[in-house]
């Protein structure tokens, strides 16, 4: 059956929607997941390099000292922290722990802030 509103407009401008904190945690989970997926080939290459020779192993850390690799490291650390924390939150909520709204809001805030703090700490340590 063709709906009578076939060519009808839809309101779906995401900038005009006020997202609750849970939605922020969720989109953060998704974005960090994509970043980690992009980082996966890099992790495989790092593994190969770390095992190939002592020189290659020792050269891994100085490589991170370059600004671009450092920035990438901070981004991936944020992504890993965000994804793992949000993931644990979801695993617990799946079995009913923290799934009432008030608790879910608190844990969403906690995940976002903790991941940000971990990324910030990594950045500070990298700069120091």
């Amino acid at each position: 059956m063709r709906s009578p509103t076939g060519g009808a407009p839809k309101f779906l401008n995401l900038f005009h929607i006020r997202f609750p904190i849970g939605a922020m945690a969720s989109i953060g989970h998704r974005i960090s997941g994509v970043l980690l997926l992009i980082g996966l080939p890099l992790l495989a290459l790092t593994l190969e390099r770390s095992l190939s020779s002592e020189v290659a192993f020792e050269s891994l850390w100085p490589a991170v000292a370059s600004p671009w690799w450092g920035l990438l490291l901070v981004i991936l650390v944020w992504a890993a922290a965000q994804h793992v924390l949000a993931g644990v939150r979801h695993l617990l909520m799946d079995i009913g722990i923290g799934s009432p709204l008030a608790q879910a809001r608190t844990s969403a805030w906690a995940v976002i802030l903790t991941a940000a703090i971990i990324a910030l700490a990594t950045a500070i340590r990298w700069l120091a």
Partner: peptide
Amino acid sequence: PLPGFPVIRDLVVD
């Protein structure tokens, strides 16, 4: 109108 729903008129959605 409700987001993502086809709009019939103003705030009325399908």
